[in-house]
């Protein structure tokens, strides 16, 4: 079993709660994530995985009536602190959303480089290089290299999702949140994205929501099991999948509910 104890803790949730109006979707989650690891979140549909993930980069608060409580520490600093610049937080914690959301009325190329361009980088060669390397990492380059100027929305659902992955990679965030990034992909593209995660693990920390148990077991160092807005169990994936402590985790993993 790998020993992670020496790895630095980069992100920590402390009693994190989230509401939509009166409805509490996340009910007090405390967990830490170590640098350069892949962390999977599994759990039945509607248990609050996406909501939790969206609290980690302060996107949840964009929804009308939504609010959070508790703390999220990024390298020891609470991102919900009033002194913290939310733009800076989101620059350091990237996100790939559950539903592909490329920018309409923007070309494939513009979709990938818009983040950099609006940060003030305008050198065309730099932008093109970044676009190519990110599209390659997202396993999309070969399919789009001849039509970089067509609209991002003209791509298929799975291609759009990979475009969104490339877009998130382009701004180079040390922490990457991925909400079911491969649910719309075929096995080949899925394998490539998993390869990508193993690749970027050298420099980045990944938190990924997935409904694919094999995927979680294959790629992740740690796994959390969510149920009804609670984190029922969290631990090294090798433990969770072979020897779960909680009955409900075992039931879920073995496909008895969910």
């Amino acid at each position: 079993m790998t020993n992670y104890n020496d790895a630095k803790i980069i992100l920590e949730a402390k009693k994190l709660e989230a509401w939509f109006g009166d409805f509490q979707a996340v009910k007090g989650i405390t967990v830490d994530y170590r640098e350069k690891t892949i962390n999977a979140i599994i759990g039945p549909s509607g248990c609050g995985k996406s909501t939790y993930l969206r609290c980690l980069n302060r996107i949840h608060e964009e929804i009308e009536g939504a609010r959070t409580a508790g703390e999220v520490l990024l390298e020891g600093e609470n991102i919900y602190d009033k002194k913290v610049d939310v733009v800076d937080v989101r620059r350091r914690i990237g996100m790939v959303f559950q539903k592909p959301n490329p920018f309409p009325s923007m070309s494939i190329l513009d979709n990938v480089v818009i983040g950099l361009r609006l940060q003030g980088i305008s050198k065309r060669s730099t932008l093109l290089e970044t676009a190519e390397s990110c599209l390659r990492k997202a396993a999309l380059w070969d399919e789009v290299k001849d039509k970089l100027s067509s609209m991002g929305t003209s791509l298929s659902g799975g291609q759009q999702q990979r475009l969104c992955i490339a877009r998130a990679l382009a701004v180079n965030p040390p922490v990457l949140l991925m909400d079911e990034p491969t649910s719309a992909l075929d096995p080949i593209a899925t394998a490539k994205i998993e390869e990508l995660m193993n690749e970027i693990k050298k420099d980045y920390t990944v938190i990924i929501v997935t409904h694919n148990m094999q995927q979680a077991a294959r790629i992740s160092d740690f796994t959390s099991f969510f149920h009804y807005g609670n984190m029922v169990e969290h631990g090294q994936s090798s433990n969770i999948f072979t020897n779960p402590k909680e009955k409900s985790t075992e039931d879920y993993i073995s496909g008895r509910f969910g």
Binding site: N57, E62, V87, G94, L118
Partner: peptide, 21 residues
């Protein structure tokens, strides 16, 4: 809204998201 969220999640300030996205 998910278009705005995509822009914000890239670490763009709100005014840039409004104007350029």
């Amino acid at each position: 809204d998910h278009i705005r969220e995509a822009g914000l999640a890239l670490g763009l300030p709100r005014w840039k998201v409004i104007l350029f996205v």
